[in-house]
Design a binder for these strands. Structure first.
Length: 446
RNA sequence: GGCCCGUUGGUCUAGUCGGUCAGGACGCCUCGUUCUCAGCGAGGAGAUCACCGGUUCGAAUCCGGUACGGGCUACCA
Protein backbone atom coordinates (compact mmCIF):
# COMPACT_ATOMS: atom_id res chain seq x y z
CA UNK A 1 0.00 0.00 0.00
CA UNK A 2 1.49 3.28 -1.06
CA UNK A 3 -0.26 6.33 0.36
CA UNK A 4 -1.04 9.14 -2.07
CA UNK A 5 0.54 11.54 0.40
CA UNK A 6 3.73 9.52 0.29
CA UNK A 7 3.51 9.52 -3.47
CA UNK A 8 3.29 13.28 -3.53
CA UNK A 9 6.29 13.62 -1.23
CA UNK A 10 8.22 11.21 -3.44
CA UNK A 11 7.33 13.28 -6.48
CA UNK A 12 8.47 16.47 -4.81
CA UNK A 13 11.73 14.85 -3.83
CA UNK A 14 12.24 13.49 -7.29
CA UNK A 15 11.64 16.81 -9.03
CA UNK A 16 13.96 18.60 -6.65
CA UNK A 17 16.70 16.05 -7.18
CA UNK A 18 16.40 16.38 -10.93
CA UNK A 19 16.47 20.15 -10.78
CA UNK A 20 19.49 20.36 -8.56
CA UNK A 21 21.43 17.52 -10.09
CA UNK A 22 21.32 15.89 -6.71
CA UNK A 23 20.56 12.29 -5.93
CA UNK A 24 17.28 10.98 -4.64
CA UNK A 25 17.77 8.19 -2.18
CA UNK A 26 15.12 5.65 -1.44
CA UNK A 27 15.39 4.38 2.07
CA UNK A 28 13.07 1.80 3.53
CA UNK A 29 12.68 2.76 7.15
CA UNK A 30 12.10 -0.64 8.61
CA UNK A 31 13.39 -0.18 12.12
CA UNK A 32 10.16 -1.59 13.46
CA UNK A 33 10.25 -5.15 12.23
CA UNK A 34 6.64 -5.78 13.13
CA UNK A 35 5.41 -3.21 10.66
CA UNK A 36 7.40 -4.18 7.65
CA UNK A 37 7.52 -6.94 5.12
CA UNK A 38 9.10 -7.66 1.75
CA UNK A 39 5.69 -7.27 0.09
CA UNK A 40 5.38 -3.83 1.58
CA UNK A 41 8.58 -2.54 0.03
CA UNK A 42 7.80 -4.40 -3.20
CA UNK A 43 4.59 -2.41 -3.39
CA UNK A 44 6.39 0.85 -2.86
CA UNK A 45 8.93 0.15 -5.54
CA UNK A 46 6.22 -0.89 -7.98
CA UNK A 47 4.19 2.20 -7.21
CA UNK A 48 7.19 4.46 -7.71
CA UNK A 49 7.92 2.77 -11.02
CA UNK A 50 4.35 3.32 -12.10
CA UNK A 51 4.77 7.01 -11.41
CA UNK A 52 7.86 7.05 -13.57
CA UNK A 53 10.51 6.52 -10.95
CA UNK A 54 12.28 3.34 -11.86
CA UNK A 55 15.49 2.16 -10.29
CA UNK A 56 17.54 4.55 -12.36
CA UNK A 57 15.87 7.58 -10.83
CA UNK A 58 17.01 6.98 -7.30
CA UNK A 59 19.75 5.44 -5.28
CA UNK A 60 18.80 2.42 -3.26
CA UNK A 61 16.61 1.09 -1.94
CA UNK A 62 18.59 1.07 1.25
CA UNK A 63 17.17 -0.81 4.15
CA UNK A 64 17.54 1.00 7.40
CA UNK A 65 17.61 -2.30 9.24
CA UNK A 66 20.86 -3.17 7.43
CA UNK A 67 22.59 -0.39 9.33
CA UNK A 68 21.47 -1.54 12.73
CA UNK A 69 25.06 -1.94 13.92
CA UNK A 70 25.86 1.68 13.17
CA UNK A 71 22.71 2.79 14.91
CA UNK A 72 23.52 0.84 18.04
CA UNK A 73 27.04 2.20 18.00
CA UNK A 74 25.74 5.75 17.75
CA UNK A 75 23.38 5.12 20.64
CA UNK A 76 26.28 3.85 22.74
CA UNK A 77 28.33 6.89 21.83
CA UNK A 78 25.57 9.27 22.88
CA UNK A 79 25.27 7.47 26.17
CA UNK A 80 29.04 7.54 26.69
CA UNK A 81 29.01 11.26 25.97
CA UNK A 82 26.37 11.77 28.60
CA UNK A 83 23.81 12.76 26.00
CA UNK A 84 21.57 9.81 26.72
CA UNK A 85 20.56 7.71 29.71
CA UNK A 86 18.79 4.49 30.51
CA UNK A 87 15.24 4.49 31.75
CA UNK A 88 13.09 1.73 33.18
CA UNK A 89 9.83 3.61 33.40
CA UNK A 90 6.78 2.00 31.90
CA UNK A 91 4.21 3.98 30.02
CA UNK A 92 1.74 3.52 32.86
CA UNK A 93 4.16 4.82 35.45
CA UNK A 94 4.86 7.91 33.41
CA UNK A 95 1.18 8.66 32.92
CA UNK A 96 0.53 8.04 36.58
CA UNK A 97 3.17 10.60 37.53
CA UNK A 98 2.28 13.28 35.01
CA UNK A 99 -1.44 12.67 35.17
CA UNK A 100 -1.72 13.24 31.45
CA UNK A 101 -1.08 10.79 28.67
CA UNK A 102 -0.11 13.60 26.35
CA UNK A 103 2.46 15.31 28.51
CA UNK A 104 5.48 13.37 27.37
CA UNK A 105 8.25 11.97 29.49
CA UNK A 106 8.90 13.65 32.83
CA UNK A 107 12.63 12.99 33.09
CA UNK A 108 12.25 10.64 36.02
CA UNK A 109 15.36 8.57 35.21
CA UNK A 110 17.53 11.43 34.01
CA UNK A 111 19.97 11.31 36.86
CA UNK A 112 19.44 7.86 38.24
CA UNK A 113 22.52 6.59 36.43
CA UNK A 114 20.86 3.33 35.43
CA UNK A 115 23.05 0.75 33.72
CA UNK A 116 21.97 -0.90 30.52
CA UNK A 117 19.78 -3.90 31.07
CA UNK A 118 17.18 -5.79 29.10
CA UNK A 119 13.93 -3.85 29.17
CA UNK A 120 15.59 -0.52 29.75
CA UNK A 121 15.16 2.09 27.05
CA UNK A 122 17.75 4.67 26.17
CA UNK A 123 16.52 8.25 26.18
CA UNK A 124 18.14 11.28 24.63
CA UNK A 125 18.68 14.04 27.10
CA UNK A 126 17.29 17.21 25.53
CA UNK A 127 18.79 20.56 26.59
CA UNK A 128 17.01 22.36 29.40
CA UNK A 129 17.44 25.71 27.82
CA UNK A 130 18.05 27.37 24.49
CA UNK A 131 16.09 26.83 21.36
CA UNK A 132 16.31 24.84 18.19
CA UNK A 133 15.58 26.58 14.93
CA UNK A 134 14.48 24.53 11.99
CA UNK A 135 15.22 25.90 8.55
CA UNK A 136 12.21 24.96 6.47
CA UNK A 137 11.79 25.88 2.82
CA UNK A 138 8.03 26.26 3.23
CA UNK A 139 7.63 27.63 6.69
CA UNK A 140 10.50 29.92 7.36
CA UNK A 141 12.27 29.17 10.57
CA UNK A 142 10.05 27.62 13.20
CA UNK A 143 11.64 27.94 16.62
CA UNK A 144 11.25 25.29 19.29
CA UNK A 145 12.09 25.80 22.94
CA UNK A 146 14.41 22.98 23.94
CA UNK A 147 12.79 22.87 27.34
CA UNK A 148 9.52 21.64 25.86
CA UNK A 149 11.19 18.84 23.94
CA UNK A 150 10.84 15.68 25.97
CA UNK A 151 13.63 13.19 26.52
CA UNK A 152 12.63 10.88 23.72
CA UNK A 153 13.56 7.23 23.34
CA UNK A 154 16.37 6.49 20.91
CA UNK A 155 16.80 2.79 21.69
CA UNK A 156 14.20 0.32 22.87
CA UNK A 157 14.40 -2.06 25.77
CA UNK A 158 15.73 -4.75 23.43
CA UNK A 159 18.52 -2.50 22.27
CA UNK A 160 17.08 -1.75 18.84
CA UNK A 161 17.22 1.85 17.74
CA UNK A 162 14.13 3.89 16.89
CA UNK A 163 13.22 6.01 13.91
CA UNK A 164 14.56 9.34 15.12
CA UNK A 165 18.13 8.20 15.81
CA UNK A 166 18.29 5.72 12.95
CA UNK A 167 17.30 8.51 10.60
CA UNK A 168 19.85 10.93 11.88
CA UNK A 169 22.62 8.36 11.63
CA UNK A 170 21.65 7.30 8.13
CA UNK A 171 21.03 10.84 6.93
CA UNK A 172 24.48 11.82 8.06
CA UNK A 173 26.26 8.81 6.62
CA UNK A 174 24.35 9.05 3.36
CA UNK A 175 25.09 12.73 3.01
CA UNK A 176 21.48 13.84 3.00
CA UNK A 177 21.19 17.59 2.38
CA UNK A 178 17.44 18.02 1.91
CA UNK A 179 14.60 16.33 3.68
CA UNK A 180 11.20 16.75 2.06
CA UNK A 181 8.38 15.06 3.93
CA UNK A 182 4.90 15.48 5.29
CA UNK A 183 4.00 18.15 7.80
CA UNK A 184 3.24 15.51 10.38
CA UNK A 185 7.00 15.25 10.80
CA UNK A 186 7.57 18.91 11.56
CA UNK A 187 7.63 18.31 15.29
CA UNK A 188 10.25 15.62 14.79
CA UNK A 189 12.61 18.02 13.06
CA UNK A 190 13.95 19.74 16.19
CA UNK A 191 14.55 16.38 17.85
CA UNK A 192 16.39 15.10 14.83
CA UNK A 193 18.42 18.27 14.62
CA UNK A 194 19.47 17.85 18.22
CA UNK A 195 20.62 14.38 17.30
CA UNK A 196 22.54 15.60 14.25
CA UNK A 197 24.19 18.12 16.47
CA UNK A 198 25.03 15.60 19.18
CA UNK A 199 26.50 13.37 16.50
CA UNK A 200 28.65 16.27 15.33
CA UNK A 201 26.97 17.09 12.04
CA UNK A 202 25.34 20.12 10.43
CA UNK A 203 21.58 19.59 10.06
CA UNK A 204 19.96 19.43 6.60
CA UNK A 205 17.46 21.78 5.05
CA UNK A 206 13.90 20.70 5.65
CA UNK A 207 10.72 21.11 3.70
CA UNK A 208 7.57 19.97 5.44
CA UNK A 209 4.79 19.84 2.92
CA UNK A 210 1.20 20.19 4.12
CA UNK A 211 -0.83 17.08 4.70
CA UNK A 212 -3.51 16.01 2.27
CA UNK A 213 -6.95 16.01 3.84
CA UNK A 214 -10.37 14.51 3.23
CA UNK A 215 -13.66 16.39 2.87
CA UNK A 216 -13.77 16.76 6.62
CA UNK A 217 -10.35 18.39 6.56
CA UNK A 218 -8.62 15.59 8.40
CA UNK A 219 -5.40 14.00 7.31
CA UNK A 220 -6.10 11.25 4.80
CA UNK A 221 -5.99 8.00 6.68
CA UNK A 222 -5.70 4.46 5.49
CA UNK A 223 -8.69 3.24 7.40
CA UNK A 224 -11.31 5.83 6.56
CA UNK A 225 -10.17 7.20 3.21
CA UNK A 226 -9.21 5.79 -0.13
CA UNK A 227 -5.49 6.51 -0.13
CA UNK A 228 -3.75 3.62 -1.87
CA UNK A 229 -2.13 4.60 -5.12
CA UNK A 230 -2.65 1.02 -6.27
CA UNK A 231 -6.40 1.37 -5.92
CA UNK A 232 -6.47 4.37 -8.20
CA UNK A 233 -4.29 2.59 -10.66
CA UNK A 234 -6.56 -0.44 -10.57
CA UNK A 235 -9.56 1.75 -11.25
CA UNK A 236 -7.99 3.08 -14.36
CA UNK A 237 -6.30 6.31 -13.45
CA UNK A 238 -3.34 7.05 -15.68
CA UNK A 239 0.04 7.55 -14.07
CA UNK A 240 0.55 10.82 -15.93
CA UNK A 241 -2.77 12.15 -14.71
CA UNK A 242 -2.15 11.09 -11.13
CA UNK A 243 1.28 12.64 -11.21
CA UNK A 244 -0.02 15.90 -12.62
CA UNK A 245 -2.86 16.05 -10.11
CA UNK A 246 -0.64 15.29 -7.13
CA UNK A 247 1.69 18.11 -8.09
CA UNK A 248 -1.30 20.45 -8.31
CA UNK A 249 -2.05 19.95 -4.64
CA UNK A 250 -0.53 23.05 -3.18
CA UNK A 251 1.15 24.27 -6.30
CA UNK A 252 0.39 25.43 -9.84
CA UNK A 253 2.43 26.09 -12.96
CA UNK A 254 2.82 29.68 -14.08
CA UNK A 255 -0.08 31.21 -15.96
CA UNK A 256 -3.55 29.77 -16.24
CA UNK A 257 -2.40 26.23 -16.78
CA UNK A 258 -2.96 23.09 -14.80
CA UNK A 259 -2.61 20.20 -17.16
CA UNK A 260 1.00 20.31 -18.24
CA UNK A 261 3.58 17.78 -19.38
CA UNK A 262 5.87 16.39 -16.75
CA UNK A 263 8.84 18.20 -18.29
CA UNK A 264 7.17 21.52 -17.64
CA UNK A 265 6.62 20.57 -14.03
CA UNK A 266 10.21 19.48 -13.59
CA UNK A 267 11.22 22.77 -15.11
CA UNK A 268 8.96 25.12 -13.20
CA UNK A 269 8.30 23.49 -9.83
CA UNK A 270 9.70 25.31 -6.83
CA UNK A 271 9.32 23.68 -3.46
CA UNK A 272 9.24 27.07 -1.76
CA UNK A 273 6.15 27.97 -3.80
CA UNK A 274 4.16 25.10 -2.39
CA UNK A 275 1.22 26.29 -0.35
CA UNK A 276 1.66 25.72 3.33
CA UNK A 277 -1.95 24.90 4.08
CA UNK A 278 -3.54 21.46 3.80
CA UNK A 279 -5.10 20.50 0.49
CA UNK A 280 -8.25 18.47 -0.05
CA UNK A 281 -7.83 15.37 -2.19
CA UNK A 282 -10.62 15.95 -4.67
CA UNK A 283 -11.32 12.75 -6.57
CA UNK A 284 -13.74 14.62 -8.82
CA UNK A 285 -10.99 16.84 -10.08
CA UNK A 286 -8.57 13.94 -10.34
CA UNK A 287 -11.13 12.20 -12.49
CA UNK A 288 -11.62 15.24 -14.70
CA UNK A 289 -7.90 15.49 -15.26
CA UNK A 290 -7.72 11.77 -15.93
CA UNK A 291 -10.41 12.16 -18.56
CA UNK A 292 -8.34 14.83 -20.21
CA UNK A 293 -5.30 12.59 -20.29
CA UNK A 294 -7.33 9.71 -21.66
CA UNK A 295 -8.72 11.84 -24.44
CA UNK A 296 -5.21 12.94 -25.31
CA UNK A 297 -4.28 9.31 -26.00
CA UNK A 298 -4.25 8.13 -29.60
CA UNK A 299 -7.03 5.63 -30.43
CA UNK A 300 -4.45 2.86 -30.43
CA UNK A 301 -3.04 3.86 -27.07
CA UNK A 302 -6.51 4.11 -25.65
CA UNK A 303 -7.48 0.65 -26.84
CA UNK A 304 -4.25 -0.79 -25.48
CA UNK A 305 -4.75 0.90 -22.13
CA UNK A 306 -8.22 -0.64 -21.86
CA UNK A 307 -7.05 -4.19 -22.43
CA UNK A 308 -6.04 -5.06 -18.86
CA UNK A 309 -9.46 -3.98 -17.63
CA UNK A 310 -11.18 -6.11 -20.24
CA UNK A 311 -9.12 -9.12 -19.32
CA UNK A 312 -10.57 -9.03 -15.84
CA UNK A 313 -14.10 -8.71 -17.17
CA UNK A 314 -16.54 -11.63 -16.95
CA UNK A 315 -16.64 -12.21 -20.68
CA UNK A 316 -14.32 -12.92 -23.57
CA UNK A 317 -13.38 -10.03 -25.79
CA UNK A 318 -13.24 -10.30 -29.55
CA UNK A 319 -10.25 -8.09 -30.38
CA UNK A 320 -11.60 -7.05 -33.76
CA UNK A 321 -14.94 -6.04 -32.30
CA UNK A 322 -13.29 -4.13 -29.49
CA UNK A 323 -11.01 -2.34 -31.90
CA UNK A 324 -14.10 -1.09 -33.69
CA UNK A 325 -15.88 -0.12 -30.47
CA UNK A 326 -12.99 1.59 -28.73
CA UNK A 327 -13.04 4.83 -30.72
CA UNK A 328 -16.71 5.25 -29.88
CA UNK A 329 -15.93 4.90 -26.17
CA UNK A 330 -12.86 7.08 -26.11
CA UNK A 331 -14.44 10.41 -25.14
CA UNK A 332 -16.89 8.71 -22.83
CA UNK A 333 -14.39 7.19 -20.44
CA UNK A 334 -12.92 9.22 -17.59
CA UNK A 335 -11.49 6.23 -15.75
CA UNK A 336 -10.38 3.18 -17.68
CA UNK A 337 -12.47 0.67 -15.73
CA UNK A 338 -15.56 2.39 -17.12
CA UNK A 339 -14.83 0.72 -20.44
CA UNK A 340 -16.23 -2.57 -19.18
CA UNK A 341 -19.91 -1.66 -18.72
CA UNK A 342 -19.65 0.40 -21.88
CA UNK A 343 -18.82 -2.46 -24.23
CA UNK A 344 -20.00 -5.51 -22.34
CA UNK A 345 -23.16 -5.81 -24.42
CA UNK A 346 -21.08 -6.68 -27.46
CA UNK A 347 -19.44 -9.67 -25.81
CA UNK A 348 -22.09 -11.04 -23.50
CA UNK A 349 -24.38 -13.70 -24.98
CA UNK A 350 -27.37 -11.69 -23.76
CA UNK A 351 -27.55 -7.97 -23.21
CA UNK A 352 -27.23 -7.07 -19.52
CA UNK A 353 -30.55 -6.48 -17.83
CA UNK A 354 -31.06 -3.21 -16.03
CA UNK A 355 -34.50 -2.83 -14.62
CA UNK A 356 -34.52 0.94 -14.42
CA UNK A 357 -33.43 1.22 -18.04
CA UNK A 358 -36.02 -1.28 -19.16
CA UNK A 359 -38.87 0.44 -17.36
CA UNK A 360 -37.85 3.81 -18.68
CA UNK A 361 -37.51 2.86 -22.31
CA UNK A 362 -40.12 0.14 -22.80
CA UNK A 363 -43.12 2.40 -22.48
CA UNK A 364 -46.07 2.63 -24.78
CA UNK A 365 -45.11 2.77 -28.36
CA UNK A 366 -42.09 0.58 -27.56
CA UNK A 367 -43.60 -2.64 -28.89
CA UNK A 368 -44.61 -0.97 -32.12
CA UNK A 369 -41.18 0.59 -32.51
CA UNK A 370 -39.46 -2.74 -32.01
CA UNK A 371 -41.77 -4.32 -34.56
CA UNK A 372 -41.03 -1.49 -36.94
CA UNK A 373 -37.31 -1.81 -36.38
CA UNK A 374 -37.45 -5.53 -37.00
CA UNK A 375 -39.22 -5.01 -40.31
CA UNK A 376 -36.96 -2.16 -41.34
CA UNK A 377 -33.74 -3.92 -40.44
CA UNK A 378 -34.49 -7.36 -41.83
CA UNK A 379 -33.19 -6.53 -45.29
CA UNK A 380 -31.38 -3.24 -44.64
CA UNK A 381 -27.86 -2.65 -45.88
CA UNK A 382 -25.94 -3.16 -42.63
CA UNK A 383 -24.43 0.27 -42.24
CA UNK A 384 -24.88 2.81 -39.46
CA UNK A 385 -26.22 5.69 -41.49
CA UNK A 386 -28.78 3.46 -43.17
CA UNK A 387 -29.88 1.95 -39.86
CA UNK A 388 -30.37 5.39 -38.48
CA UNK A 389 -32.41 6.59 -41.44
CA UNK A 390 -34.65 3.57 -41.30
CA UNK A 391 -35.33 3.82 -37.61
CA UNK A 392 -36.02 7.51 -38.00
CA UNK A 393 -38.72 6.57 -40.48
CA UNK A 394 -40.21 4.09 -38.03
CA UNK A 395 -40.39 6.80 -35.40
CA UNK A 396 -41.98 9.23 -37.80
CA UNK A 397 -44.93 6.89 -38.21
CA UNK A 398 -45.62 7.40 -34.54
CA UNK A 399 -44.81 11.08 -34.59
CA UNK A 400 -41.64 10.52 -32.59
CA UNK A 401 -38.22 12.01 -32.98
CA UNK A 402 -35.17 9.82 -33.14
CA UNK A 403 -34.29 10.60 -29.54
CA UNK A 404 -37.39 8.82 -28.36
CA UNK A 405 -37.41 6.14 -31.02
CA UNK A 406 -33.93 4.90 -30.37
CA UNK A 407 -34.51 4.29 -26.67
CA UNK A 408 -36.35 0.94 -26.86
CA UNK A 409 -33.95 -0.33 -29.49
CA UNK A 410 -30.96 0.73 -27.42
CA UNK A 411 -32.25 -1.03 -24.33
CA UNK A 412 -33.22 -4.11 -26.31
CA UNK A 413 -29.75 -4.44 -27.77
CA UNK A 414 -27.41 -2.99 -25.13
CA UNK A 415 -29.52 -3.33 -22.01
CA UNK A 416 -29.05 0.25 -21.01
CA UNK A 417 -30.58 3.60 -21.66
CA UNK A 418 -27.25 5.35 -22.16
CA UNK A 419 -24.21 4.18 -24.00
CA UNK A 420 -22.18 4.34 -27.16
CA UNK A 421 -23.63 5.76 -30.37
CA UNK A 422 -26.37 3.25 -31.18
CA UNK A 423 -26.21 2.79 -34.92
CA UNK A 424 -22.48 2.39 -35.06
CA UNK A 425 -22.83 -0.16 -32.29
CA UNK A 426 -25.47 -2.06 -34.26
CA UNK A 427 -23.28 -2.04 -37.32
CA UNK A 428 -20.45 -3.58 -35.34
CA UNK A 429 -22.72 -6.05 -33.57
CA UNK A 430 -24.08 -7.41 -36.81
CA UNK A 431 -27.53 -8.08 -38.19
CA UNK A 432 -28.04 -11.47 -36.68
CA UNK A 433 -27.38 -10.52 -33.09
CA UNK A 434 -29.20 -7.23 -33.38
CA UNK A 435 -32.36 -8.77 -34.75
CA UNK A 436 -32.28 -11.60 -32.25
CA UNK A 437 -32.04 -9.16 -29.34
CA UNK A 438 -34.81 -6.95 -30.63
CA UNK A 439 -37.00 -10.00 -31.07
CA UNK A 440 -36.25 -11.20 -27.58
CA UNK A 441 -37.15 -7.83 -26.12
CA UNK A 442 -40.28 -7.66 -28.22
CA UNK A 443 -41.35 -11.06 -26.95
CA UNK A 444 -40.92 -9.95 -23.38
CA UNK A 445 -43.23 -7.05 -24.01
CA UNK A 446 -46.38 -9.05 -24.77
C1' G B 1 -3.57 20.78 28.25
C1' G B 2 1.37 21.89 25.71
C1' C B 3 4.28 22.86 21.27
C1' C B 4 4.10 23.93 16.12
C1' C B 5 1.65 25.05 11.45
C1' G B 6 -2.17 27.18 8.73
C1' U B 7 -6.72 30.52 6.89
C1' U B 8 -8.28 33.79 -1.36
C1' G B 9 -15.72 31.46 -4.24
C1' G B 10 -18.00 24.44 -2.30
C1' U B 11 -12.80 22.52 -3.91
C1' C B 12 -7.41 23.14 -5.96
C1' U B 13 -5.02 27.49 -6.94
C1' A B 14 -3.07 32.74 -9.48
C1' G B 15 -2.05 36.99 -7.08
C1' U B 16 4.77 37.20 -4.68
C1' C B 17 7.79 45.02 -5.46
C1' G B 18 0.43 47.50 -1.66
C1' G B 19 -3.41 50.63 -6.91
C1' U B 20 -6.24 43.85 -10.80
C1' C B 21 -13.45 44.32 -13.02
C1' A B 22 -9.46 39.43 -7.39
C1' G B 23 -7.65 35.54 -12.89
C1' G B 24 -7.81 30.09 -14.10
C1' A B 25 -9.40 25.03 -13.18
C1' C B 26 -12.85 21.24 -10.89
C1' G B 27 -17.84 21.06 -9.44
C1' C B 28 -22.82 23.33 -10.24
C1' C B 29 -26.58 25.82 -13.71
C1' U B 30 -28.18 27.48 -18.81
C1' C B 31 -27.87 27.40 -24.08
C1' G B 32 -25.85 25.30 -28.75
C1' U B 33 -24.09 20.88 -31.57
C1' U B 34 -26.62 15.84 -31.15
C1' C B 35 -29.72 9.03 -31.84
C1' U B 36 -28.83 8.41 -25.57
C1' C B 37 -24.59 9.65 -22.82
C1' A B 38 -20.12 11.84 -23.23
C1' G B 39 -17.09 15.30 -25.77
C1' C B 40 -16.79 20.01 -27.87
C1' G B 41 -18.41 25.40 -28.08
C1' A B 42 -20.72 29.69 -25.64
C1' G B 43 -22.66 31.87 -21.31
C1' G B 44 -24.00 32.09 -15.88
C1' A B 45 -24.29 31.81 -10.49
C1' G B 46 -20.70 31.67 -6.64
C1' A B 47 -15.22 35.66 -2.81
C1' U B 48 -16.71 42.47 1.18
C1' C B 49 -9.47 37.62 0.07
C1' A B 50 -11.39 34.03 8.36
C1' C B 51 -12.51 38.23 11.82
C1' C B 52 -11.17 42.97 14.38
C1' G B 53 -8.02 47.03 14.61
C1' G B 54 -3.64 49.73 12.77
C1' U B 55 -0.12 51.94 8.92
C1' U B 56 -1.32 54.35 4.06
C1' C B 57 -4.26 58.80 -0.58
C1' G B 58 -5.00 53.49 -1.37
C1' A B 59 -4.19 46.53 1.63
C1' A B 60 -5.92 39.96 -0.25
C1' U B 61 -0.97 41.98 -0.21
C1' C B 62 2.60 45.44 5.58
C1' C B 63 1.89 45.28 11.40
C1' G B 64 -0.82 43.65 15.92
C1' G B 65 -4.62 40.91 18.15
C1' U B 66 -8.85 37.40 18.02
C1' A B 67 -11.39 33.31 16.16
C1' C B 68 -11.47 28.89 13.72
C1' G B 69 -9.05 24.60 11.47
C1' G B 70 -5.04 21.16 11.34
C1' G B 71 -0.47 18.37 12.81
C1' C B 72 2.36 16.34 16.75
C1' U B 73 2.43 15.09 21.76
C1' A B 74 4.50 6.10 21.67
C1' C B 75 10.09 1.66 23.76
C1' C B 76 5.30 3.71 15.34
C1' A B 77 7.40 5.71 11.33
Amino acid sequence: MFHVGGARSALFNWVMARQSGGTLVLRIEDTDASRNSPEWTEGIIRALAWLGMDGGEYEGPYFQSANADKHVEAAARLRADGRAYYCDCTRDEIVARTGDSHKGYDGHCRDRGLDPAPGRALRFRTPDEGQTTVVDLLRGKPVFENAVLEDFVIARGDGSVTFLLANAVDDISQGITHVVRGEEHLSNAPKQQLLWDALGAEPPVWAHVPVIVNEKRQKLSKRRDKVALEDYRAEGYLADAMRNYLMLLGWAPAGDREIVPWDVIVDEFRIEDVNSSPAFFDVKKLKAINGDYIRALTPEEFAAACLPFLEDAPFDVDPAVFAALAPLAHTRVAVLSEIVPMVDFAFLPEPPYDEASWNKAMKEPAAAILDGALAAYRDAPWEAEELKTRLEAVGAEHGLKLGRTQAPVRVAVTGRTVGLPLFESLEILGRETTLARIEAARARLT
